[in-house]
Structure formats: C-alpha cells, structure tokens
Design a protein around this nucleic acid. Structure first.
Lengths: 213, 213
DNA sequence: AAGATAATAAAACGAACGTTCAATTAATTC
DNA sequence: GAATTAATTGAACGTTCGTTTTATTATCTT
C-alpha cells in the first residue's frame, strides 16, 4: 500500500506535532521512538520524515514555536501603562495563563533542552533569556520608581519565574482550584514578594485581585 | 584479562554512583548508555551489573538515597523551638543548602521520575510528599498562630518549594553571588511571601539575616 | 483522461542498546 | 600453597533505534 484515501499533509503534520508534544511530555524525548509517535498518529514511521527531516528537528520546531508563542502572547497583552505594578501583574497573569494552557509544551521546552545540538540550544536559550529580561526590566524600573522593594533584581526575577512556571508541576485542571483562583493567589504572592507598596493585591483584599483578572 | 590489580568493589560502586549522577544530570537517564557510564568509571559495561542488577535499579537507588538524605538533613537541623518563623527559616536554609550542594542529584531526582516503574515512582513521590508536608505544617501552624498571613497553605507551600528548588537551575558556585548571599535573599523573599509579621528577615535589615545563617 | 505531484507503505540498513555468560585473574582464606 | 572468593573482561545475544530507499497509490492539474 502507499498513499491512503483521505490523507492530507497539513492534517498529518498537525497530528504529528500534537502527538509529539504529548508523548515527549509523558515519556521524554529520548524515550519516545519515532515508531511510537507514528503509531499514535496512525501512520508508518517513514511518513514522519516527510514533515521533519530528523527527530531533533521535530523537537526543535516544537520548542521554537512554543517560545515564539510565549513572546507573542506577552507582546499582545503587555500594558501601555508605565505603572510597574500593572506591568508586573500583566506579566504574571500572562505567564501563568500561557503555561497552564500549554502544560505539555512547557514541559518539553523546559526538560528536553539537553537533547538539542549546541547551536539550537543557544537559540532557544536566547529566546528564553529575552523573555526573562522583560521581567527584570519591570522589576528594576519598579524598584527605581520606589514601587517595589527588591534586594536583588536578577535573583528575584529568577525566583518569580521558577515559582510561576512551577504551577505546571502540580496544577491539574478541574481539581480543587480554578485557574483564576490560582492566578489571583500567585499575583498576591508576587506582589508581596517584590514588596509592592500598594496593597491592591494583598491577601487582605482578594476581591480586588479577582476583579483585575 | 579479568580482575584488575587494585580493584575494589566498594570503590568501584562509589565511582559508578558518582559518574552516574553526573552523566544522567548532563545527558539524561535515557540518553546515558551503560557503556558510556562504564567508560567514565574506567571499566567494562558488564562490570556494572555486579553492583546494580538493571539500569533502572541504578536510577532508583540514586533517587531513593537522595530523598533519604534530604529527610535526614532536615531531621538533624529542624529546630526544637515551636516558633513558626524560626522553623520556616530553618526549612528554607536546609532546603537551599542541600539542593545547592547536590545540584546534580537533585536534577536527577526531579527530572527522571518518568523513567521509574509505577511502584518505584510511587515510593519516591511518597518520600517527596512527606518532605513537602513538613513545610505545609509549618505554614499552617504559623498561619493559625497569626505569625503568617497566607491565603492558601498548600499552594503557598508548592510555590515556595518551586522557588527554592529553582536555585539549582541558575546558580553556579563561584559566580556573582555566594551561597550565604543567595540564602539570605531567599529567606527574605520567603518571609515576605508568607507575610511574616516580624521584619527580622525583611530587606530593611539584611544584617539580621546574615547573622542567622 | 493523462500526466504530474503529494502522501504514504513496506522493507531494509547499520548502529547502538541493555543485558547475559563464560572465562580469567587478583585477592583472600585456611 | 592450595582452595576459595571477589572483581572484571571480552564476546555475544536479541532487540530496538533513527533513518533511507523504493515502490505504490491517491489526489490534483490541465
């Protein structure tokens, strides 16, 4: 047999991407075989090579598009206001929403970096660093303006990102907490962590937080 | 050839463990081959099977001992005082010190869980949950006593652990910050995050933090 | 309807994998 | 110093891996 009735390149490629994200997230990149991926898509392994020249190309494509998606999401949502508190809140909201929505893709992008070739690793890390720099700038400007009280901007940025991204480790949709509830709590924790002067986001007035979502 | 002069089972096993932690941390469990590990130790692959019946047994042993070490470290350092702030500070100090000291082992224990068989995965997760529960209890009792101001104990515990463990991702010994400096800043961030009433650990008086290390 | 192109199957490639087995030598015991 | 035990080698096993090649069929173009 060869070409099957109803086969469509675009649909197959999309199915490959989706199956790959799920399989890599569950079993890991090295542990997922091309045959396993092909079976999940309902195709022979050789067919995958029409869309991705190598297994690593597939991984890199998934990661690059995930990082580009993160940047685009932030650029669309980033507030025009220069208020540091508002900017930080937007960053936190976007980060958490994006990562919860794409838990598996985030897992892949964070855990499989070591399977990339050196120059591709550099490319992905550059995108990640650029995204993290946005947070550092917000923190720095907020601290300079007296809106935040921060000891070490770089360290605080890393701590915040680790804290927020960590959501994907334990969060499961439909369990005890909803996404807005989690986001509200994380916003509140973030604002206290950076010593935000105003208490709009403090635990004392959670209703205000809810409203800003 | 067969047994080599000066060969010693205990020394070989220790060398295997150390090499395995480093190789798995760098390349991942699936990507590390038994031959590669053997070469690093300076031995043939077959020799490894004298010490670990399977590759997965090796991984499980490394993880179990890492988790046991974490628990033992905490039990030794845990303060007798019932003061929530002091207990939380001790927990943070121990967690950061332990994870920075054993960066590679932590990487392995956190990233390679999916390579364990179901019942071994359960064993490791149980140990991890027990350790995390200690933090939840501290937070809960502190909140009940009015020492902390916390919205959601479980969520705050997860956020703190993700934040602290995240240190191993970016921290490199001998760079900009020393371990005590990092620890002090994380202590300060932690105390603000949980809304600790007293400001012993606030950014305003960093000297107090240093002293308590 | 014919020709071109897109999408796949089927089979095969060499390489590498985890693991086993038998043989061999070093160290220890008696 | 002989017997035993500990530690390791070297070769081999069957399996699976990522990938390539070739053939075949469906769909699109004209």
């Amino acid at each position: 047999m060869a070409r099957t009735t109803g086969s469509d390149g675009e649909r197959t490629e999309a199915a490959v991407r989706e199956a790959a994200v799920n399989l890599i997230a569950r079993y890991g990149y090295e542990a997922m075989s091309m045959r396993q991926l092909a079976a999940e898509v309902g195709v022979q392994a050789a067919a995958l090579y029409r869309y991705f020249p190598t297994k690593e190309d597939l991984l890199f494509t998934l990661m690059r598009e995930h990082m580009e998606g993160l940047r685009e999401a932030w650029e669309h949502i980033r507030p025009t206001s220069a208020d540091p508190v508002e900017q930080l809140a937007a960053y936190v909201r976007n980060h958490i929403a994006f990562h919860i929505e794409r838990r598996h893709a985030t897992h892949v992008s964070n855990m499989e970096l070591r399977s990339l070739s050196p120059d591709r690793l550099t490319q992905i890390l550059r995108m990640r660093t650029a995204y993290e720099k946005e947070l550092r700038i917000i923190l720095r400007e907020g601290a300079d303006a007296g809106a935040f009280s921060i000891e070490d901007t770089g360290l605080t940025a890393m701590a915040l990102i680790q804290m927020m991204t960590g959501v994907i480790v334990w969060f499961r949709p439909g369990e005890r907490l909803s996404v807005p509830e989690v986001t509200a709590t994380y916003l509140s924790m973030t604002m206290r962590l950076v010593g935000a002067r105003m208490d709009t986001y403090s635990a004392a007035r959670p209703s205000d937080v809810q409203r800003t979502l």
